[in-house]
C-alpha cells in the first residue's frame, strides 16, 4: 500500500525536517508527561517546583513555547530525575533499536536518513520503567 504521508513528506527537504522536528517535540513532551504521571506530579506542582507559572509550564509542555535544553534540565531537576543524556551517533551507523532511544535517561539520535527518513514511532515500556522510541 502506498504511504501517502511518506510521499507528501518526501516532496521536500523542508517537510522531512519538519517531520523530524515535530516527532522529536512530541516524543519529548510525551515522555515528560509519562514521568509526571509515574511520579504523580501535576502541572501546577511542576510549575511550583520550577518557580515558574503554570501557564509557562503549560506552554512548554504543549509545544507552543520552545523548550530549551536549560528548561528541559530544569524540568528533570524539578522531577528529581537526572537530566536526559544525549548521545549522537553517525547518520550511517546501523540502528539496532531505532533512531531515537531513551533508556535510563539516555536519548540517542541516529540513522534517521540512513533508513530512508521513515518516521515510525514505536514505543514500548517494560516493568522497570525503561522505554524505547524509534522515529
Amino acid at each position: 500500500m502506498r504511504n501517502y504521508f511518506e510521499d507528501w513528506k518526501n516532496e521536500s527537504v523542508d517537510r522531512q525536517r519538519l517531520v523530524v522536528e515535530e516527532s522529536f517535540i512530541l516524543d519529548v513532551t510525551e515522555e515528560i508527561h509519562a514521568q509526571m504521571e509515574q511520579l504523580g506530579v501535576g502541572r501546577a506542582q511542576l510549575a511550583e517546583r520550577m518557580g515558574k507559572s503554570k501557564a509557562y509550564v503549560s506552554q512548554l509542555l504543549s509545544g507552543s513555547r520552545n523548550m530549551t535544553l536549560r528548561s528541559l534540565a530544569d524540568i528533570s531537576f524539578a522531577l528529581e530525575l537526572d537530566a536526559p543524556k544525549v548521545v549522537f551517533e553517525r547518520a550511517d551507523a546501523p540502528a539496532s533499536n531505532g533512531d531515537w532511544q531513551h533508556s535510563d535517561n539516555v536519548v540517542r539520535m541516529s540513522n534517521y536518513h540512513a533508513r530512508g527518513g521513515s518516521i515510525e514511532v514505536i514505543e514500548s515500556s517494560n516493568d522497570d520503567g525503561c522505554w524505547r522510541a524509534a522515529l
Binding site: V19, L26, H33, L61, V121, I122
Partner: peptide
C-alpha cells in the same frame, strides 16, 4: 498525523494538550 501514528503504534498520548 504523527499523533495518530503514535496511537496506531500503541503508545498512549498522555499529554492533555495532545
Amino acid at each position: 498525523h504523527i499523533k495518530m501514528q503514535r496511537m496506531a503504534n500503541g503508545a498512549r498520548l498522555r499529554n492533555p494538550d495532545h
